[in-house]
């Protein structure tokens, strides 16, 4: 199902060239999705007042980067790639992100216990 189609050329349908619609999907297209996720996550981090919302923004950012890694490592998208490095780095990022989320969540719960709020704007005891 989700195997990238590689058939068009070999299938004799060579008529589809660069300019026709739809354009073949390239690394750049994946990068755009990655960039969108990254930016959405970054803005989410900056604007959300709920600490958990901020954490979700971080997840989005990491996923944007992960998508880049996978796209750079994909054999189906270009000839000379990052290779398995891309996929492996994505794997490790997923694991590290899980660890980070666990800690951040524990800290957020601790904050909630002490402040009875999860609003990061209320985290203003410390300033100067």
């Amino acid at each position: 199902m989700l195997r990238p189609p590689d058939g068009l050329v070999a299938d004799g349908i060579t008529a589809i060239d660069m300019d026709s619609f739809p354009p073949p999907i390239t690394v750049s297209h994946y990068l755009v999705v990655g960039a969108v996720l990254f930016v959405l996550g970054a803005v989410c981090m900056a604007t959300k007042r709920n600490a958990l919302g901020v954490l979700m923004g971080i997840e989005l950012v990491l996923n944007g980067a992960n998508l880049n890694f996978v796209a750079f490592g994909s054999r189906f998208l270009r000839q000379d790639t990052l290779g398995l490095d891309g996929e492996l780095m994505a794997l490790f990022v997923i694991v590290l992100a899980a660890a980070e989320a666990a800690v951040a969540l524990a800290i957020a719960l601790n904050f909630y216990n002490n402040h009875t709020t999860i609003d990061v704007d209320h985290a203003d005891d410390l300033k100067g």
Binding site: R3, P5, D6, G7, L8, A10, D11
Partner: peptide
């Protein structure tokens, strides 16, 4: 070799 989509 990953076969052509249609065929496979």
């Amino acid at each position: 070799v990953t076969a052509p989509l249609a065929a496979q």
